[in-house]
Design a protein around this nucleic acid. Structure first.
Length: 876
DNA sequence: ATACCCACGC
DNA sequence: GACGTACGTGGGTATC
């Protein structure tokens, strides 16, 4: 017949999905994570395999025929969590909707159903694909049956054919049951031979071929201990083999004919997805036309109206439509107003020529509600229109309410609040290379719809901010900050292009030499930047030891190479090549690409609504990761200069702000005292952790203590700390324990924070910035652990972010008050960079320090250091 | 276009 | 025991 049959191990995939994904629930409060994960897998299979026959097999009931052989079969296994059990009926409904047969049979497991059907199908000459997460299924691999096992995640699979099975495990499919018989399987409580694991089992099979072979030629088994184990557990081994052998002659009530799959009805599946809340999967349904015009909310956008003060009211939603992300360079395509007079669309030319609009824009008492205040204000500023009175930013409000939401645009927020009739920008304008400006009517209508929604969304979001006690945070921190950040971006940073190009040329020469030396060592030319090519050269051709592997091959990361450096001269050359190559591509070429041609300035964009902790991020260019640690890289900073003659770069940074915040929030006396007395905090920590007096702290002890403090601040794990210190995980954990013993209130604070996260579902900063941590109650150890560390870390890092943001607002006001020309141009998490006339430096030193140190009142003092110079490099 | 590896900052 | 582990941005290569 030559059919294509796909058999899915339903329980296995559902389990995988359940544990791989956070416990999502849909708007009806029904848990859907397993169904969701299963569905993504299913869609992928349908796309890749295009089967004409398909079946999802499930396990039935508690007992199976295997329990007669072995009463303890699957004993000790955790009960299926109810959160998962309740998803099986939902999953089966969904399969019905897809028109995919599913089946279960008393006394049998899904494996047996799959084995029986696969065998039958093979006999007919069909091609079979089995999907599971269970390695037992590998015994079904044959020339006509392929088994695909999930590895990490759900949709990530390994494909096994007889050849690849041989390659990966060095055994044939018929040996799989022998392997399991020997090594057992703890998850199914299959004993195997205790003390024999995968390694030994594979070795035995390589020598003897089968379990029977081992015992027939028993004298040839090497090792007394091993022999003993095999002898005493012979019975268990043979029973195990019987248990893991898949039954291939199950008396099924269905036939292959019944598994025929004819494709699904798009409308049916779409409705199911919508009920389940799988909005993100809608686009993957074949033949679904999304966002049909009929469903969209109607909007009456008036074009060509006269832009007079009659339509410019006290409270107006204002949309500036720009197609590209970069509002510093991309033009305004439309300006749309929505208020109680209606929805009105204009071109930027119409706006520029309207005196009424200019007056309204400049009037701080006329409230403007916008999406992305910074973008809006900067865009107008570029067209010479100052905008005041921007009182509500939907983007920032949504971000504060829940930063974990990755899409804060108007269509997405509308959707979450139950309004579906508004298409996304992507749907209207296309994405990537296909993005294009549609005709005016389409563009205006889309922008109009957003303006209309914005007007409605505002009150919802205000309500949520109020519930979260975030009104202050919103109105007095993020909103004013947006305006300041806009000014900073618009001002930009002057770049010494000539200097940058010189550095580039010098680097080019050095890279060429190093490249040649590497080729000489390797004996051939290859792409040094390709780990895929570099790996075989180092670890095969040159025979260097393999210390670490990645998913796809050899790891060639810096920490690995550093360990290999004594082994071969090529290593240090590669590390240098990497270092200089990074400078060249990212910091020389990358920077030059975004320097404004006429002004020689770069205008970064600070993303104020992205990070989960409240920090800012910076793009195009990212000015928050300019090299500083290595001298070679640090020189890049020589290319950042003041924009005016006789001015300097002035940098001010908080010293240990996170640890000071921790001292404040935990109330730990020892830590507080450290800061009050101006001690070196790392030395102090070292003296505590290593239990020596401060004067006996060695440089190395201080270095280790610094890493511990770093770990506390960034919430890294014992593993992370062990990596950065190059010690064992146990030793790292011991440092952490010693730290908590020395600073008991810190420990108490951390425990309290985690407890609060578990109870309330979120943690908060000093200024009520919030982060939800659904995983703190996860049954998955890793997820839970990561979430707990996040719970401890976010209030610290987030509060530090709150503090510097407030300092920026205060400083901006203070500079105005003092009539200083100095201007903030950058923020790098705990550091503010200004440019200023030389003459102001003395006053600035005092003013900036005072403002930054006094912006909040903590139980410990904040300490600010400053520096200045002709370039950013010299401000050190 | 997307995934992966690597590397820079705090 | 759990095998993966702070937050970001960006460049390069390889693959689909």
């Amino acid at each position: 017949m030559g059919n294509k049959l796909v058999l899915i191990d339903g329980n296995s995939i559902a389990y995988r999905a359940f544990f791989a994904l956070p416990l999502l629930n849909n708007d009806k409060g029904v848990y859907t994570n397993a169904v969701y994960g299963f569905t993504t897998m299913l869609l992928k299979i349908l796309e890749e395999e295009s089967p004409d026959h398909m079946l999802v097999a499930f396990d039935a009931g508690k007992t199976t025929f295997r329990h007669k052989t072995y009463g303890e079969y699957k004993g000790g296994r955790q009960k299926t969590p109810p959160e998962l059990s309740e998803q099986f009926p939902v999953l089966q409904d969904l399969l019905d909707g897809f028109g995919i047969k599913h089946y279960q049979l008393e006394q049998y497991e899904a494996d047996d159903i799959i084995g029986t059907l696969a065998t039958e199908a093979e006999k007919q000459g069909d091609e079979v694909t089995v999907i599971s997460g269970d390695k037992d299924l590998l015994q079904l691999v044959s020339d006509h049956t392929t088994v695909r096992l999930t590895k990490k995640g759900i949709t990530n699979v390994d494909t096994y054919t007889p050849t690849s099975l041989k390659e990966k495990m060095e055994i044939g499919p018929e040996q799989v049951i022998h392997l399991k018989a020997l090594m057992g399987d703890s998850s199914d409580n299959i004993p195997g031979v205790p003390g024999v694991g995968e390694k030994t089992a594979l070795k035995l099979l390589k020598q003897f071929g089968t379990l029977e072979g081992v015992y027939e030629d028993f004298d040839a088994v090497s090792g007394k201990k091993l022999k003993e184990k095999l002898e005493t557990n012979k019975e268990e081994a043979f029973m195990s083999k019987q248990l893991v052998t898949i039954e291939k002659e199950v008396p099924l009530e269905i036939t292959l004919q019944d598994t025929t799959y004819k494709g699904y009805e798009a409308a049916t599946v779409k409705e199911q997805f919508q009920n389940l809340g799988f909005e993100s999967l809608l686009s993957r349904i074949d033949g679904v036309v999304e966002s049909e015009a009929a469903e969209m909310i109607s909007v009456d956008v008036k074009q060509g109206a006269e832009l007079t003060k009659e339509i410019l009211t006290e409270e107006t939603a204002l949309i500036v439509e720009i197609l590209e992300d970069n509002y510093h360079t991309s033009p305004i395509e439309a300006v749309v107003l929505s208020n109680d007079k209606g929805v009105f669309a204009f071109s930027i030319d119409e706006v520029k020529e309207s005196d009424a609009f200019r007056a309204w824009a400049a009037d701080a008492d006329k409230e403007k509600w916008v999406f992305d205040a910074k973008r809006t204000v900067v865009a107008f500023k570029r067209y010479g229109i100052p905008l005041e009175g921007v009182t509500f930013d939907v983007l920032l409000a949504s971000y504060l309410v829940n930063p974990a939401v990755n899409n804060h645009d108007i269509p997405a927020i509308s959707h979450r609040l139950g309004e579906t009739g508004i298409p996304s920008d992507e749907e209207v304008y296309g994405k990537g290379a296909k993005r294009a400006r549609p005709e005016d009517s389409v563009l205006y209508e889309h922008a109009g719809r957003k303006a209309l929604m914005l007007y409605r969304l505002k009150s919802d979001l205000e309500e949520q901010l109020k519930n979260n006690k975030q009104e202050d945070l919103f109105h007095h921190l993020e909103m004013p900050l947006a305006i300041i950040l806009g000014e900073m971006e618009y001002t930009g940073v002057q770049v010494d292009v000539k200097r940058l190009k010189e550095m580039g040329e010098e680097l080019e020469g050095r890279l060429k030499e190093i490249r040649q030396r590497i080729y000489d060592h390797a004996g051939e030319e290859f792409n040094i930047n390709s780990p895929k090519q570099l790996g075989p050269i180092l670890f095969e051709k040159l025979g260097l030891p393999v210390l670490k592997k990645t998913k796809t091959g050899y790891s060639t990361s810096a920490d690995v190479l550093e360990q290999l450096a004594p082994e071969h001269e090529i290593i240090s050359e590669i590390l240098l090549f990497r270092q200089l190559g990074k400078l060249q591509s990212t910091y020389i070429e990358g920077l030059l690409k975004v320097v404004h041609e006429d002004t020689h300035k770069v205008h970064t964009r600070f993303n104020q609504a992205l990070t989960q902790t409240g920090r800012l991020s910076s793009t195009e260019p990212n000015l928050q990761n300019i090299p500083i640690r290595l001298e070679e890289g640090r020189k890049i900073r020589q290319a950042f200069i003041p924009s005016r003659e006789g001015w300097v770069m002035f940098a001010s940074d908080y010293s240990q702000i996170e640890l000071r915040v921790l001292a404040h929030m935990s109330g730990d006396e020892k830590l507080i005292q450290s800061f009050k007395e101006g001690e070196d905090v790392h030395t102090k920590t070292a003296s505590e952790v290593f239990n020596v007096s401060p004067e006996d702290v060695t440089a190395d002890m201080r270095r280790q203590a610094k890493a511990v403090n770093f770990g506390i601040v960034y919430g890294i794990s014992d593993y992370g700390l062990s990596q950065s210190l190059g010690v064992t995980r146990k030793a790292a954990q011991a440092y952490i324990d010693a730290y908590f013993k020395s600073y008991p209130k810190v420990k108490e604070y951390m425990d309290d924070t985690v407890r609060q996260a578990k109870e309330e579902g979120f943690v908060e900063t000093l200024m009520h910035r919030r982060r939800y941590l659904p995983d703190v109650n996860s049954r998955n150890f890793n997820r839970r652990n990561a979430a707990e560390r996040t719970a401890m870390n976010t209030p610290i890092q987030g509060t530090a972010a709150d503090v510097i943001k407030k300092a920026m607002i205060d400083l901006s006001a203070r500079l105005k008050e003092e009539e200083l020309e100095a201007t903030m141009i950058l923020q790098v998490h705990d550091e503010l960079i200004l440019e200023a006339p030389k003459e102001e430096v003395e006053q600035l030193t005092e003013v900036v320090k005072e403002v930054m140190e006094e912006t909040v009142d903590l139980v410990v003092p904040l300490q600010v250091d400053h520096s200045y110079g002709d370039t950013w490099f010299d401000a050190k």
